[in-house]
Nucleic acid binder design. Structure first.
Lengths: 69, 69
DNA sequence: TATGATTGTAAAGTAAACTTTACATTTTAT
DNA sequence: ATAAAATGTAAAGTTTACTTTACAATCATA
């Protein structure tokens, strides 16, 4: 896949603004804290399913959280 | 990850309605036709990056194409 | 009928997402 | 200051997305 285009996100900002910890977000979307950390840091590119679960947990539309650069 | 929840999509319907072939969609998003086929059939769960590229190529918002069931 | 374009299927290999565990560091509240 | 909560980092293992190649089947058009 195109390596020049990178998926960015503002999960950390939105999560913090709602006072949700990494651990509770992880539980909300049935994954682990490690996965949340890695996604927040851009260390990896989540699956669309997990990304959508995160959007729902954070009560945002997909494009409000994720974008391409 | 939660195996009871499944990511669904209507890529095939939207793609067809715009007269875009699997191959040209694949080229638009810099992937292969095999990947498009597998995603359309629900055989796998695309990355959020690829999913967003597809949304842009099809000129739709994420939630217009992808949802959870 | 024939030819090209589109789609379906399959299989092997690679890359990366995700899990699990463990421990260290920082922040917050008492 | 101290304890608890939250966050950072790391590493090994498993699962799955994604690539590449190849060939068959369907459909539209000349």
């Amino acid at each position: 896949m195109n390596k020049e285009i990178v998926l960015k996100n503002k999960i950390k900002e939105i999560r913090s603004s709602k006072n949700i910890s990494q651990e509770s977000l992880a539980k909300l979307v049935a994954t682990t804290r490690q996965t949340i950390i890695a996604i927040e840091k851009g260390q990896f590119n989540p699956s669309a399913k997990l990304a959508l679960l995160i959007c729902i947990a954070l009560d945002c539309k997909f494009e409000e959280i994720f974008w391409l650069e």
